[in-house]
Write a protein that binds this DNA or RNA. Structure first.
Lengths: 221, 221
DNA sequence: GGGGGGGGCATTGTATACAATGGGTCGAGA
DNA sequence: TCTCGACCCATTGTATACAATGCCCCCCCC
């Protein structure tokens, strides 16, 4: 893996695990010394992260970790609801006992992370479950897109998620595996859709609009 | 629009219109003098184009316009087949006569471009029809993804498309508008799926594998 | 005491210089 | 004449220098 890629992975990991919380500033200089490279390399990574919506770069003000707003959160979940259930049909023909084993191991990791109250690990493992599944579809473009959506979901869950919305996953995911083992495409698809809708519904979206306050209306007597 | 953005748009346009054909090299220096900036600005744009799969950057060898292979072409079309038909349901509630007018005008442009044998224009207008439609879904994330897929499709059509696969679109697109005007969601969805499948089927994918030649097998007596 | 303006500092934007890599060409030897 | 090798040039990778911007604080004036 190239050096840039390593830096990218490390920063992305830190963002997803909320070691770099939403809103955190990412000064080029500090990162440059931290990784032992010049600002040039850091800028490249930051711009990639910006294109993928993990950070926001404001001209002449630099980068900070994206703080997804309500609209973005809902759109990410809606995108997943539209795509992931359909991928079930694509991946089921390839599904075999080896995959089943691998994914059941992953579910166990999720459960133990959850029981130890390692929220960050739990969220990340949940994301991984979903995008590893997407990869089995065989369509690398869609798999990459789902992967990005899952990572963005990690950010969203950490910001708007309730404990319940994350922790119910462990049990849930193994149910999907049962359906896949039975080659029950329709119920597996339905399960996936309901699962994602459940997560979407569990988000706490305080609807106080911080933006677009209509001062004129507000202060007209 | 920022300066970078302008450069990005110009290069992207040139790629989609095949003024920069697949495989064309994009030396940083030449582009830098062409746009009157230093290599720094060009590199940023090229890396963005690379992340979006319009160019390929090979370390120490630079950038060239992506030449989509068979697999990539099929995956792009499959992605669109999975997403776009479903978006019909999302956009139909917002569909009104104003939209209808706008899109019918677009179809006319497509037809005239096609009649004048302006293949590049025709391909691009077709792409635009699809992603403008996607934008009406209200989900900006999916719309942006579809937009990217449509642009990639332009590259693919120019490389693998038959004249028929492009030119049949003009008449086709207006049929979809009729269905949308009738608020016939199911048939509009079906139309979209068939339309994309038709395009996919019309690609000429010569299956001579240029890569991964198995010399060992080839030359073992 | 409060508000507005100016200056300094921290940070990013852009260009350029130098290092490193890859490919192509020219020449020597078989 | 063909092949292998070394050198050179074109191009990219990386670091650094300087310019430009924005923010914050302080001071001055009202």
């Amino acid at each position: 893996m190239s050096n840039d890629e390593k830096i990218y992975q490390q920063i992305l990991k830190a963002i997803i695990e909320h070691q770099l919380p939403p809103g955190a500033r990412l000064p080029e200089d500090s990162l440059a010394v931290a990784f032992g490279v010049s600002r040039t390399g850091i800028r490249k990574v930051l711009q990639r992260l910006a294109l993928e919506h993990f950070v926001v770069i404001v001209k002449n003000k630099g980068a900070q970790v994206n703080r997804p707003n309500e609209t973005e959160a809902l759109e990410v979940l809606d995108s997943r609801i539209l795509i992931e259930p359909q991928l079930i049909h694509e991946l089921l023909p390839h599904w075999n006992t080896t995959h089943s084993q691998t994914f059941r191991t992953m579910v166990q990791e999720e459960n133990s992370a959850e029981q130890n109250s390692q929220l960050a690990d739990s969220i990340q493992l949940t994301a991984r479950f979903h995008y590893e599944l997407a990869k089995l579809s065989g369509n690398r473009i869609l798999a990459a897109f789902v992967e990005q959506l899952c990572y963005r979901s990690s950010l969203i869950l950490a910001a708007y998620g309730t404990r319940g919305s994350v922790s119910c996953d462990g049990g849930d995911h193994s149910k999907l595996l049962d359906l896949l083992d039975k080659k029950d495409a329709n119920n597996a698809e339905k399960w996936m859709r309901d699962h994602l809708k459940h997560i979407k519904a569990s988000l706490i979206l305080e609807s106080r609009e911080e933006q677009n306050i209509d001062f004129k209306r507000l202060f007209s007597r």
